[in-house]
């Protein structure tokens, strides 16, 4: 299990290089995804959760950590989120859908197709949820949020 988490850490640090993350953020985005991978492995294997539910918790953890890191290091959220979310993206489901399609096993194929779409939807839901929650609770944090800056700008203009 620890080996798996190290694996995902290495994979995501490497992937961050491909999408040109600045050097000082490489390890952080690796850390985000390692936490996500750990959540997934624990949920899926130790607690025997369904694949879809495990993906949800994993994506939720990744999104939360991305938001916290983005505030703490004053960087765009995308920086951590894009790389971090990769381990939960249903590559396995995609492969199995096609595999069973070619094998001629229509029921298995449509099962995996549904699962793939569900996981994708669940990832979307997790990101959506975390974005909304962070907007409520982290509002007064540093000026990374567009509207806090905007409000200040408006005040400045009025003063002028």
């Amino acid at each position: 299990m620890i080996l798996k988490i190290i694996g995902v850490f290495i994979a995501i640090v490497a992937y961050s290089v491909i999408i040109e993350t600045p050097r000082r953020f490489l390890w952080l985005s690796g850390l985000v995804s390692a936490v996500g991978g750990a959540v997934f492995v624990v949920c899926n294997e130790a607690w025997r959760m369904d694949m879809v539910l495990a993906s949800f918790w994993s994506a939720l953890g990744i999104a939360l950590l991305s938001h916290i890191f983005a505030r703490a290091f004053r960087a765009p959220v995308t920086l951590f989120l894009v790389a971090g979310i990769l381990p939960t993206v249903p590559g396995a489901g995609m492969y199995r859908t096609v595999y069973y399609l070619i094998l001629g096993d229509a029921s298995m194929s449509s099962f995996y197709l549904t699962q793939t779409l569900e996981v994708a939807g669940v990832i979307a839901l997790a990101i959506f949820l975390m974005d909304s929650v962070s907007r409520i609770f982290l509002k007064r944090d540093v000026g990374t949020q567009p509207w806090t800056k905007e409000r200040n700008m408006d005040k400045k203009q009025e003063e002028k």
Partner: peptide, 9 residues
């Protein structure tokens, strides 16, 4: 490395 890392994962 990405591919290898995911193989481990």
């Amino acid at each position: 490395l990405t591919v290898i890392g995911f193989a481990v994962f």
